[in-house]
Amino acid sequence: MSEHGHHEVKSPVGWMDRPAKVKRLFMLFYAICAALFLSEFVLMGTENLHPHPLEERMGFFVYPVYGFISFWFLVLLARPMRTLLIRSEDYYEGGGAYDPSSDPGHVSTHSPGSEEGMGHPGIGDPGSEVTDAR
């Protein structure tokens, strides 16, 4: 990797390299999720300003469940799609099938079994989502 020495010295460690901080962010996010889940009980009592026959037919907790399941459905369908559609990077320039052994830059973006923020700075970190949610 190309690095500029004088910049490297300036910022060797980011806040995501501190597991305690990352863990605190996770906790905050889980708390927000829990609060949003409970807010469904508040919604039950309010009048729906935009009468929504579909929502009424589907029952309560539609949105949290739908959001969660959507992500899993999306990824579980994308994975078999990948095995079908993946080709080498130079496919359109005459290349052929994808060969995992010739993928030097392939870096695992997650590591199964790692605890949140522990040992793997930034891995599985929801920094962006938490910021979004606020």
Binding site: F29, Y30, L36, F37, Y63, G67, F68, H110, P126, A133
Partner: peptide, 18 residues
């Protein structure tokens, strides 16, 4: 609710390696 639980889905997908 939709967005935060979607994000929660993302975290679980990352943590399970899926």
């Amino acid at each position: 609710q939709l967005l935060c639980f979607g994000a929660l889905g993302f975290i679980t997908l990352m943590k399970t390696g899926v």
